[in-house]
Every structure is written in structure tokens, then in C-alpha cells.
Design a protein around this nucleic acid. Structure first.
Lengths: 142, 142
DNA sequence: TGGCTTATCGCAACCAGTCGCAATAGTGAT
DNA sequence: ATCACTATTGCGACTGGTTGCGATAAGCCA
């Protein structure tokens, strides 16, 4: 009963453990970006013996394999999601905290410019872009 | 013996304390981006009774007044610098950690686009742009 | 100068996340 | 099915940073 994830894990010298499977399952079920803390809490509700540090380490391992990705928002927690979800950027308002997704295409011209001018292959989806959203902009200019 | 910083502090209901002054002085002397930890260590070398948390709180207070700014790098460490320094973006390589400054003008087209299309006033200097630098790119494609 | 208000301080506890270590348990080979 | 190898685990200590709290001291007015 091995599947593709099992095989790719083994192919890279990694192993499939119950803990790893639980982290993967939790990410499958989570529709949106979740924190490692969220995942740990969810898993520990049923399997309290699983240590949070194991969850962190597994997120890292699954990321190495390209199964999951993380994004930094403006607060200091990292959020995780499956890598097969559509890539997109993030806007987050520093005043009200509102978050907004952004088609990745909008960031493409800058990425191209950085690649052409600096030889730098940028991952513009990795960190949210912070600023002031339209609503907060209007309020403060009254 | 009050100066402009004193006045602006008081005008906003804040106070000038020795701790605050020491943080400001440390930032004046630091040419580049420094971590809060750096500043705390430097100050505590002479004034060991000053708590690190006080340094963090003062950086925040000075930021509210527009005297200092912070930038997030990829290691999640926050670095601080005086706000009067020239604004610029940052590239950081996720493989070798190399950092590179970037003229802010390069980011301007994206900022304009976000403002026009989404009413979002982006601060593109706030988070470093992570990716793979030219050198690491060449190595991995050998 | 002395007194009042309250911003700020030092401290200790806490939060998100990382790391070293000895014990455990996947994995491939026999 | 067993074995040896070593990736992974749970645990506890630690890091950079934040927060609640009672004590201290700026700033303002008399």
C-alpha cells in the first residue's frame, strides 16, 4: 500500500512515519494557509503524544520534497499550505491586518526584471507584501 | 537642552528616557542594518541593568515616530536602521544567504500597479525578496 | 521645589520555533 | 522473519521576541 508520496520520500532517503502522514493529512484537509501551531493542535487532539517539534520538522521535510510551501505574513507566524495549490502573492494591510490574494502574474514583471538585471531568481510569493489597504487609506486621509 | 527628537516625543505624549536615548544613539552609530539583539548587547555592555525588552519596546516607539524602520530578512530576523537612510529593497539568497541592496526604483512599477489596480499602498522595502542568487543558480545548474 | 499623572522600566512568564540527544522504529538486505 | 543501519521521534533546553505587572521616574502644573 505505497503511494506516490511514500515513494518519493524513500527515493530521497526519507521515511514514511505515522507522524509524517498525519501532518500531510492535516494539510490536505486545511483549505487555506494554516500555522504549524494549528496543525499541531489538530493532530494532538487525537494523538497527544505527538510533539509539536515533530510537526515543525515534518513540515520542513515535506517542503524539501516540494509537497508543501510556507509564506511569511507580517505577524511573526509562518503559514503553510500544499504546494499543489495555485501559486499566488499576498497583500496584507499593516493597519487592519486584512489579507488579500494576488494573481502571481502581477508579480511576474518584477521577477523578470530581477532575473534579467541581477541574475536573481526571486520567489515573490514567499513573503506577503505589506502596506496600507484601500479601506484604511481612505479612512486616514479623511 | 531639548532637541527635535525630544520635542517630537513629547508632542506625541511620549517621554525621553535614558534608555530611549541610548537606543537612538546606538542606531546613529550603526552604519548598517542591525538586529535588536545587537543593539541590546551593545547597550548592555555599558549599562547591564537595561533589559532587552526595553530595547525592543523603544525600537517600536521610535518607529511610531518615524525615526527608525525595520526590515524582515529570510531568517525571520528583524533588522533595524534609521529612517533617514536612503530607502532601498533587499535581495536575499535562500541558498547561500547573500544579501544585496536594490534601488527602490526597480520596485516602483509594481508599487504603482498595486496602487492603481488594488488601491494598495505597498511598502516593498519592508520584507526582503528571497530567491536564488546568480552564483547559486549557476552552481546548481552544472 | 514639590506633588500628581501616567509613560516607561525591569522582571518574569510566555510564544513561535529550533536544536541536541538518547531511544525508537522505518527500510533494504539476508 | 530477522538484522543492521540510520532517519525520525519525544523530550528538554534554548533563541529571538512579546506581554502583564508592580515599581520607577518623566513631564507638567502650582
Amino acid at each position: 500500500m505505497s503511494n506516490e508520496l511514500d515513494d518519493r520520500l524513500r527515493a530521497s532517503g526519507k521515511r514514511m512515519t505515522v507522524q509524517r502522514r498525519l501532518v500531510m493529512d492535516a494539510l490536505q484537509r486545511a483549505r487555506h494557509h494554516v500555522t504549524a501551531e494549528d496543525i499541531a493542535t489538530r493532530i494532538r487532539a487525537r494523538h497527544p503524544q505527538i510533539d509539536p517539534s515533530t510537526v515543525y520538522r515534518n513540515l520542513g521535510a515535506l517542503e524539501e520534497l516540494g509537497y508543501v510551501t510556507h509564506t511569511h505574513f507580517d505577524d511573526r507566524v509562518t503559514r503553510w499550505h500544499r504546494a499543489d495549490a495555485q501559486r499566488h502573492g499576498h497583500l496584507v494591510c499593516r493597519t487592519c491586518g486584512a489579507e488579500q490574494e494576488l494573481p502571481i502574474g502581477l508579480l511576474e514583471p518584477l521577477a523578470r526584471r530581477l532575473r534579467d538585471d541581477h541574475g536573481f531568481r526571486a520567489d515573490l510569493a514567499h513573503s506577503a507584501i505589506v502596506g496600507i489597504c484601500k479601506t484604511c487609506s481612505n479612512v486616514s486621509s479623511d
